[in-house]
Nucleic acid binder design. Structure first.
Length: 260
DNA sequence: ATGGTTGATCCTCAA
């Protein structure tokens, strides 16, 4: 089962790019972030026509996440637990049955957190703490699960072309990195890094200042696997060429292959 | 030091 994550940066503005990629790459499951669309205006038909079932958690103008799957989508849950007052659409999870067993797929869009320090950075760190709590509960189930999405955290210096440029940014600050490490240290595996330990891997290039042309990228989109999922990992990668297409997102898809 | 880009919605904000 091939599972991909893609921060689409506006699903309506990016519909033709998304449909082209779905038809070419044919991922079994896709986690989308930054829909910037309400449920009612989400382009369901075009995606359903390509053979995908849909579970959407949208919001007006900002955020928004969705799971697309060629297989059935079961037991959908919307919203990250831990704060009933949080109405930002940043989390959707569901079970996808495979040929041998099933996988719990969690699609997440972590807060950007800039400017830091400040209230937005506080919200980011509080959200990451809630993510850790959910990640802990998932581990206790001892089943294959994937945390897939835009974590808005650069894990280590080697995950940025110019790490020094991000040292004070919410995406690269030590507090953000520590929050991600706390989740990894529970027992999660970085599906990209575990198979590509020494590779230059970026998933985001800013629209500004010719970041793409200069390969001034960062790796902030991640696939974290429970041990039961990591045991079945056979391949992973970054669909880098997507950044060079017409009207691209500023992110590209990341994917992994699980024997499920 | 500034400005550079994009999308969605309301003439600004979030990224």
């Amino acid at each position: 089962m091939r599972i991909a994550s893609f921060n689409i940066n506006g699903v309506k503005a990016r519909l033709s790019l998304l449909c082209d990629w779905l038809a070419e790459a044919r991922p079994d499951v896709v986690c989308l972030q930054e829909l910037k669309s309400q449920d009612e205006s989400f382009p369901r038909e075009a995606i359903a026509d390509l053979g995908y079932n849909l579970a959407i958690h949208g919001q007006k103008a900002f955020n928004g996440v969705a799971i697309l799957s060629r297989r059935p989508i079961e037991d959908v849950s919307r919203g990250l637990p831990g704060d009933d007052g949080d109405d930002q659409a940043r989390w959707i999870e569901a079970t996808v049955p495979g040929e041998s067993g099933a996988v719990r797929v969690c699609c997440l869009y972590a807060p950007n957190g800039n400017p830091a320090p400040g209230p937005k950075f506080d919200y980011k760190l509080a959200w990451m703490a809630r993510l850790k709590a959910r990640a802990e509960a998932l581990l206790a189930a001892e089943e294959p699960a994937v945390l897939a999405g835009d974590f808005n955290v650069i894990p280590q210096d080697e995950d940025a072309a110019r790490p020094e440029a991000w040292a004070e940014d919410a995406l690269g600050r030590p507090e953000s990195r520590a929050a991600l490490r706390r989740i990894l240290h529970l027992g999660y595996w970085d599906a990209l890094r575990v198979l590509h330990p020494a590779e230059r891997l970026y998933t985001f290039w800013d629209y500004q200042k010719g970041a793409w042309e200069r390969d001034d990228g960062i790796r902030i989109d991640h696939l974290l696997l429970t041990p039961q999922a990591a045991d079945r990992l056979t391949a992973s990668g970054v669909s880098r060429e997507m950044r060079g297409r017409e009207r691209p997102s500023d992110h590209v898809p990341v994917w992994c292959e699980l024997e499920i």
